[in-house]
Simulated assay, not measured.
Amino acid sequence: MRGIADEIAAALSANGLILRGCVTFAEGEEAPSGLSGASAKSAILVGQAGAEPWPHFLRWRERQPQAIANPLDTWSRQVIGAVAETFGARAVSPSDRPYLPFQQWAMQAEGLKPSPLGILMHPKYGLWHAYRGALLFEDEIGVEASQASIHLCDTCVEKPCMKSCPADAYSTEGFAYQSCLAHVRGATGSPCRTGGCLDRNACPYGTAYRYPPDVQAFHMAAFAR
């Protein structure tokens, strides 16, 4: 089945997406249903590194009604759904209800751990990556397992990601959601609205994959709605 994984990766690359690893569900383990309704045996995670999908998304966005809700989610569902249809899989999204354990799947598939900001720290991409969906198969799909790597946050002494937010949104006690939201919406939140989260941008890892300001502004606008 390794050939199928390579074909899926090639199909995803047409829209700047990448295969982010695979979770195999053990016999008797609770698993979501596949295309036919039987329990899935494999979940191939689909996502991005850096802002590679952005030009593809923008070209699609130009052809859509301006009032469309959650356009990036809609685009992701369409693209991943088309790949799922080609390969006989069921496509699922992180925003599906009830929520599926995407973060747990990602930690299992890629051996990642959360950063102090909650975003999983990748040894190459830093905080500049995302998961856009998954393909659920009722067969086991062979995908090369990620090698265990050092958790970069453990080597970071200064922790600038915990010191750059004017609203002190992140601390050892967690994420102060309401304080962050009020700051981003307020008069002093312009740098966050136009250039992205200051704490996230302060992280020294994966800077070659940092999202451009317009991409970060898009996500901050969605957060502040």
Rank of each mutant, 00 (worst) to 15 (best):
E140I: 14
P94N: 08
A148L: 12
P212W: 01
W75Y: 15
Q108W: 03
A208I: 00
C165W: 10
A217Q: 03
G174Y: 02
P114I: 05
A38F: 10
L35H: 04
P166M: 10
I44Q: 02
A9Q: 12
G142N: 08
P116E: 09
L152I: 08
G133L: 04
V184E: 01
I141M: 09
W105E: 04
T172N: 06
A187T: 12
E144T: 13
M107R: 15
N15E: 11
P166W: 09
A221N: 09
E27D: 14
L100Y: 12
L127W: 07
H219R: 05
R193T: 05
A67G: 14
I8G: 01
G174R: 15
G88L: 13
L12W: 06
F175N: 05
Q108C: 04
A109S: 07
A40G: 11
K163G: 00
S93F: 08
A91W: 05
R77D: 15
F25G: 01
D139V: 12
L45K: 06
G37L: 12
G37Q: 11
Q108I: 02
L19W: 03
R63H: 07
L19I: 06
E140V: 15
A84V: 15
T207H: 07
Y99C: 01
A182N: 12
W75G: 02
G50K: 13
L45W: 11
E7L: 08
G47N: 07
N70F: 07
V79A: 03
S115V: 07
E138M: 04
I68T: 10
I18P: 00
